[in-house]
């Protein structure tokens, strides 16, 4: 796509910002079946390894005075526990392991994805859609199991004038079903956007030498794009955490709606 879009000056620059998201079989072959070990599998497994290292081995000494690793695990525990309690309510605490699972998986995937040359599992809609649908199904099931038909009061805004209520009910219903869409696309989109933009800057960073010929414009472009990569990387570190946090906190908000549908 690069050569015809850009001028002759940058003819040698190659932009493949989306290549980093390609799913490839790890052990040869082109076909990706259901159980093929791919790079996505590898990085998911690494997320599990990292999580076990942090949450299980970190806390294995059960020290009253925590070591550094243990205090990180305790910090994560306290952070999510407090969030579930504050946002979703005290009776949502039994969903804490579930939300913790989502949060830890997303956090580890996001941060592992920031390692150069790595693969970011959370940048794939296949992953985030499943995560969001799990939340959606769980929340809906919990809502109906806990409140029965009263759960539908979520869509019936009793504080609005009677004439407006059916209209609002339709809007609420639509927004309810849009939830998993925005929930999943927000995460994948954020992660993908940041990584793709970093990749574009990385392509510009190669402007110093195009087609093995040094270029004058590269003297300015290359340092600027390296600076840009650094700044964006810092932003992405922030985004990696905030998106995991947002995903978890929205799950809590949806759970609160399911547990206490009256509003």
């Amino acid at each position: 796509m690069a050569s015809e879009v850009h001028g002759a000056d940058e003819g040698g620059l190659v932009f493949h910002p989306m290549d980093q998201f390609t799913v490839k079989p790890l052990f040869g072959g082109d076909h990706i079946g259901m159980f093929t070990i791919t790079n996505a599998t590898l990085w998911m497994a690494l997320a599990v390894v990292g999580l076990v290292a942090m949450m299980v081995f970190g806390s294995s000494r059960r020290a009253v005075i925590p070591t550094r690793a243990q205090s990180i695990a305790e910090l994560a525990y306290g952070f999510i526990f407090k969030m579930v309690e504050d946002v979703a309510g005290k009776d949502a605490v039994r969903f804490f392991p579930y939300i913790m699972t989502l949060f830890m998986f997303i956090v580890f995937s996001n941060f592992l994805g920031l390692i150069p040359m790595s693969f970011t599992t959370t940048s794939h809609f296949a992953v985030t859609v499943v995560l969001a649908l799990l939340v959606f199904v769980t929340v809906t099931a919990v809502g109906f199991a806990k409140n029965g038909a009263k759960f539908l009061a979520l869509f019936w805004v009793s504080s609005a004038p009677m004439a407006l209520r059916p209209v609002l009910a339709v809007i609420e219903l639509i927004s309810y079903f849009v939830r998993p869409v925005s929930h999943s696309i927000r995460l994948a989109g954020n992660v993908m956007a940041g990584h793709a933009v970093i990749k574009v800057f990385a392509a510009f960073a190669a402007a110093l030498v195009v087609n093995e010929i040094p270029t004058a414009v590269g003297i300015i472009v290359t340092p600027l794009s390296i600076l840009g990569i650094t700044a964006l990387y810092a932003l992405e570190v922030l985004v990696a955490f905030i998106q995991a946090y947002v995903f978890a906190i929205l799950t809590c908000v949806y759970l609160r709606d399911a547990l206490h549908p009256s509003h």
């Binding site: 504050d86 696309i185 927000r186 906190i249 929205l250």
Partner: peptide, 27 residues
């Protein structure tokens, strides 16, 4: 702060949608 992040997330989601549309048109 939780409300802040929820608000930011909702505002940003729409921007991400348009980014997604751009990506779809591109690729």
């Amino acid at each position: 702060t939780a409300t802040l992040f929820i608000g930011i997330a909702f505002a940003e989601a729409l921007g991400i949608f348009s980014f997604l549309v751009a990506l779809l048109l591109m690729f």
